[in-house]
Amino acid sequence: MSAPGPAGLVIAHLSDLHLGAHDPDTVESVVADVAAVRPALTVVTGDCTMRARNRQFRQARHLIDRLPAPRLVVLGNHDVPLISVRRLVSPYRRYQVLIEPDLEPVVRLPGLTALGLATAPAWRWKSGRVSRRQSDAVVAVLAAAPLGDVRLLAVHHPPRATGLARVAGRGRLLSALAVARADLVLAGHTHVPASGTVRTAGTSHRLIEVVAGTATSRRTRGVGRSWTVIRIDEEAVHVEERHQSGAGWRTGPVHHWPRRT
């Protein structure tokens, strides 16, 4: 990818809001903190709700609407009803009516092409899956991006996850990302912020995976609440973790990844 404009590109990345198991004060403060970085795009990588209930979706919608636009939001496993007939007959209806009608949303901005995929099929309770059709969509959308665009994929389940959290279809997804010359994969699910590089077996392609922590929920898994700012300039991708500190937020670890040439 060639360099973005002189001011660079800023992306706000939140995940695992878990409205219904959230801290109300954190909701207020994170909206202000995200707005302060003036992102070109705000990405929410799933688990907008705790148990996919109408009231929780309405709370999530209210929060998402207050985040800077444009926004790209993808489905998480907690956004599918847990145990009910609805999981069998209309697993995504509430999400699609109240959050995002498109399970594969696309956002195109000057210098950026972004695609979201739903990696939480109704017949898998926790772990993720990417179908062959979805991998084909990665190639169709991202490979067709204008020359020089940052090519971004947003999913709930991290492709680098291993063990029980491993994404079914991971190999074909990574192959598709290599064909599409993707630059970034944004994910959540673990509630633990992290970033690193991913290489596809048999290719020289390298992309950067950024996992955001939980932004507003009480399910912090020992690391506190956080969200992530991604800044892309001519030289590198800078991944800044924003950690909750008292009533506000502070800069946590910052990771710098060289730009792919």
Rank of each mutant, 00 (worst) to 15 (best):
A3Q: 08
P4M: 03
L14Q: 05
L17Y: 00
L19K: 00
A21E: 00
V27D: 02
E28F: 00
S29H: 01
A32C: 04
A35V: 05
A36Q: 03
A40V: 01
V44P: 02
T45W: 05
D47P: 02
T49N: 04
A52L: 10
N54M: 11
L63A: 04
D65H: 06
R66E: 12
V73H: 05
V74L: 09
L75E: 09
V80G: 07
R86L: 15
L88T: 11
P91R: 04
V97S: 12
V97F: 10
P105S: 11
V107W: 07
T113W: 03
L117A: 11
T119D: 02
K126E: 14
K126R: 15
K126V: 07
V130I: 15
A143F: 13
P146M: 14
P146D: 15
L147R: 15
D149W: 08
L153D: 12
P159A: 05
G163T: 13
A168R: 12
G171F: 06
G171R: 13
L174P: 10
L174S: 10
S175M: 03
A176M: 10
R181K: 12
A182G: 12
A182I: 08
D183C: 15
V192E: 09
V192S: 00
S195H: 13
T197A: 14
A201C: 02
G202M: 10
S204V: 11
H205V: 15
R206G: 06
E209A: 03
S217F: 02
R218P: 01
R219T: 08
R219V: 10
V223M: 01
V223E: 08
V223Y: 00
W227R: 04
I230W: 04
R231N: 06
I232C: 07
R242W: 03
H243E: 00
A247Y: 09
W249D: 08
H255L: 12
W257M: 06
T261I: 06
